[in-house]
Amino acid sequence: MSDFASGSLTGKNLHLSFGSNHVLRGIDLHVEKGTTASVIGPSGSGKSTLLRVMNRLIEPDQGDILLDGRSVLKDNPDELRQRIGMVFQQFNLFPHKTVVDNVSLALRKLRKLPAEQARAEALEQLDLVGLKHKADARPANLSGGQQQRVAIARALAMKPEVMFFDEATSALDPELVKGVLALMADLATGGMTMVVVTHEMGFSRNVSDTVTFMDAGVVVESGPPEQLFTNPQTERLQGFLSDVL
């Protein structure tokens, strides 16, 4: 898997509050084109919210988002989201549609491809994740790992410039995690720009190019994985790592 038309992504000084709850308190995150940034941290630290702010599912109160160096805050948010694929913890496949229709829906309705061409492209994406033979099944009849790989194919079908993974393996049975992580590693080595919120420290350490540790809505520490995992500078990261490793 390679030749993604990927781009760089930057979040600058992002702030977000829900009422008096200050969820993001000035986050800076930069992902170079074709690299993978993993975001780690305790639950409630704002990692998942950060993803939703960066594709404007939630509008930030303050700060800027740059895709390929250009601010996208004034763009139509729907068009921005077509350029950023997202994979969720709970898969969120559309249960009333077949697997192939899940993947081709956006191609037909947003890219306006004719039905046949959309199906052909969807089948191609399903082939990449090893599930072409499940094209006409319903999501409910797939295992969690298969569902998550369909969700990845669905996001990839739109030829995104960046991919977001929101704890993509957290809801999976342990034996199914490996297949999904392998697929994500494939994408990373293929040159996709990725932001991966994860509790999989192995993935974070071995696959990602940079690691960002968040706690209580701020970036506490970030840098290359060797540095963060072998030589954490802050007490909070040291404590977190000793809890999860």
């Binding site: 599912l57 729907d78 989201r81 350029r83 997202m86 969120n92 559309f94 309705k109 969700a151």
Partner: peptide, 26 residues
């Protein structure tokens, strides 16, 4: 489930299209 609307919007569908194509049929 809220995740259905969110997934549809994350693909780039507007709120109205998401309701029409994903949420209401279910």
């Amino acid at each position: 489930e809220k995740g259905q609307l969110e997934a549809s919007r994350a693909l780039g569908f507007s709120y109205n299209s998401s309701m029409r194509l994903v949420v209401i049929p279910q």
